[in-house]
């Protein structure tokens, strides 16, 4: 079974990647200045108490011991507990060090599981929008290389790629939401709140799809079998949809796999602007609050998602194009 061998090999390599990522982030968080215990306990806490809490939490052990403990936890499906977020979801903030009402800390895995579906919804909708915008333009440009449609596609993608997502988000929120009152923008109270963020995200991804498609369609259209298809008497539409598009799908899939991290960066900023309660907003808050376990957890989960998505992309690519080898 070549497919089984492929899966085992890729999953093994993926495990190594996730391990490297977590090791990198873990070390990084421990060597940068700034004591998270100070933030947890509050500015007024005495030094002795800080040391006591830090020792109890194992934060004064050597880094490799802490990392060993962490990896042990991750292997059992335990990503640790957040430093600052309480489990009941109450507001985070200036609780003092001897606050007796402070409750159990939230589990990192729970926090991620609560927010991830929102982000996946946003990302999927953005992908749908991006494909709707980019596929016609990219294919049209690819069918007429060097001529007006190709040029238009180039200009359009150059402009789109130059729009900073946070600025575009603000401008569109101002226009569509404040002035014209068409779409809700800030927060999340239903599906409608996903549309505007997804649209901004789509405009960010679209230029890459346009460029990729117009290059690969132009490449396929220059091949022998397209000329032969004309001789065989296939109509223009049959040639485009059955031959050109199918062959251009593979590079597009690969692009989506590679650009996953860019998509995630976009999600981060856009969720921040629109106050959309997803993984991106969680990440930014975690960084601002120096919530180390949460940052690590998010890094591990996103690295794993990256690995899995790339395996799925390669599997799909071989299904579409049987000439490809595993």
């Amino acid at each position: 079974m070549p497919i089984l061998r492929f899966l085992v090999r890729r999953l093994f390599q993926g495990a190594i990647i996730v391990f490297l990522v977590s090791a990198l982030i873990f070390t990084l968080l421990r060597i940068v200045p700034g004591d998270p215990v100070r933030l947890m306990a509050g500015g007024m806490a005495p030094e002795a108490l800080i040391e006591q809490i830090a020792t109890e939490m194992g934060l004064r052990d050597p880094i490799y011991e802490q990392f060993g403990r962490y990896v042990g936890g991750v292997l059992q499906g335990d990503l640790g507990q957040s430093f600052v977020r309480p489990a009941n979801g109450a507001a985070v903030g200036g609780a003092s060090f001897d606050d007796s009402t402070r409750s159990e800390r939230a589990k990192v895995l729970d926090l991620i599981a609560q927010t991830a579906p929102k982000t996946i919804q946003l990302a999927l909708l953005a992908m749908v929008f991006a494909l709707i915008i980019a596929v016609p333009i990219g294919v049209w440009g690819g069918l007429n290389p060097g001529r007006l449609p190709d040029r238009l596609a180039l200009y359009l993608s150059s402009v789109l790629v130059s729009l900073p997502n946070f600025w575009l988000g603000i401008v569109l929120a101002l226009l569509l939401s404040v002035k014209l009152n068409l779409l809700p923008a800030i927060g999340y109270k239903g599906f409608a709140y996903t549309i505007l963020p997804a649209f901004v995200l789509a405009l960010e991804i679209a230029p890459f799809i346009i460029r990729n498609l117009s290059v690969s369609v132009a490449g396929v259209m220059g091949q022998n079998f397209i000329d032969i298809a004309r001789v065989r008497g296939l109509t223009r539409n049959q040639i485009i949809f059955r031959h050109a598009m199918k062959n251009s799908a593979v590079p597009l899939l690969n692009l989506l796999g590679v650009q996953f991290s860019m998509l995630l960066g976009g999600v981060l900023v856009i969720e921040f602007i629109f106050d959309y309660p997803g993984l991106g907003l969680l990440t930014i808050n975690a960084v601002m609050q120096r919530d180390f376990p949460l940052i690590q957890g998010i890094a591990v989960v996103t690295a794993a998602a990256f690995v899995l998505i790339n395996i799925v992309v390669d599997l799909l690519a071989t299904t579409i194009d049987p000439r490809l080898d595993y």
């Binding site: 991290s261 981060l268 960084v287 998010i298 890094a299 690995v307």
Partner: peptide
């Protein structure tokens, strides 16, 4: 490549 670079960047710059 599998760490989104923006997460890496804001992590480093956020804590230093």
């Amino acid at each position: 490549l599998s760490i989104p670079m923006i997460i890496l960047a804001i992590t480093i710059l956020g804590v230093s």
